[in-house]
Amino acid sequence: MLTYLFMGIVLLAIGIAVHVLKWNILVAYYNTKPEAKKNNKNTESYRKILGFYGYITGGLFFLLAFLEYRGISVPPTPVTAIFIVGTMIVMYFAQKDDEDEK
């Protein structure tokens, strides 16, 4: 339960930091781009996508922590697999959005 709660807090904090506080340093793909390609539209798009992903995954981890608190056991292996696959899908579409604007 504590692991799910910790992950929920961390992901929610990352979502807020990227989306609301506009900490571009947390957007890894953005930081690898040349200065000429770092325009404001792409930055806002990345922050929005990653911020909402942080909100959604953080909320799901809070839900898992609540389920564990209520006595419903949730195995960590499927949760980790779903989280990794979801992250790869989000990063694929974030980069695809960048390629479409070329």
Rank of each mutant, 00 (worst) to 15 (best):
D100P: 00
A36D: 02
L2A: 15
Y69E: 09
T43V: 13
M1W: 10
P76L: 06
L50C: 06
M7H: 09
V20Q: 10
D98A: 00
A13T: 13
Y92N: 00
G59H: 09
L50P: 07
V90E: 12
N24L: 01
L67M: 14
L2M: 09
T32K: 02
N40R: 14
P75W: 07
V90H: 13
L21S: 06
Y53R: 00
F62D: 08
K37Y: 12
I72L: 13
T87E: 14
K102S: 06
K33W: 03
L5P: 06
L21I: 05
R47Y: 05
L64E: 02
D98V: 05
L63P: 10
K96A: 01
G15D: 15
S45H: 06
A13L: 11
K48F: 15
D97A: 08
P76I: 13
F66D: 05
T80W: 12
T77V: 14
Y4K: 13
T43Q: 13
G71N: 04
G8V: 04
E35Q: 08
D97E: 07
R70K: 14
A36V: 00
V27Y: 04
V90C: 04
G71D: 12
A13Y: 15
A81K: 04
K37C: 06
V10D: 07
A81E: 03
V79R: 08
V85Q: 06
E68Q: 10
Y92C: 06
A81W: 02
P34M: 02
A36M: 00
E44G: 07
L60D: 08
T77D: 09
D97T: 06
M91S: 05
G58V: 00
K41W: 12
T57L: 00
E44M: 11
L60E: 11
N40D: 13
L67T: 09
L64N: 10
E68C: 07
E35V: 08
I49D: 15
L60V: 02
L21Y: 11
L26Q: 01
Y30V: 05
F61M: 11
F62N: 11
N24D: 05
N39A: 08
Y46A: 03
N40E: 14
N40S: 15
E35N: 03
G86K: 00
Y69D: 01
L11Y: 03
Y46G: 02
F62I: 08
F6W: 15
L11Q: 12
A94S: 01
M7E: 11
L5C: 08
G59Y: 10
Y55P: 01
T57H: 06
M91G: 04
G51V: 04
V74M: 09
Y69K: 03
I82M: 02
N42G: 02
W23R: 10
L2F: 15
A13H: 13
K102F: 01
V90L: 10
K96G: 06
F62L: 06
T80L: 13
P75C: 01
A81L: 02
K48G: 09
I49C: 10
I84D: 04
L2N: 14
I84H: 00
I14D: 15
V85I: 04
G8P: 08
E101M: 06
N39V: 05
V20A: 10
G58L: 07
V10W: 11
P76Y: 14
N40L: 14
N40V: 10
I9M: 03
K48Q: 14
T43W: 15
L11I: 05
L12W: 10
V27P: 01
P34V: 05
M91P: 04
F83V: 07
F6M: 15
Y30Q: 04
V74W: 02
E99H: 05
R47T: 03
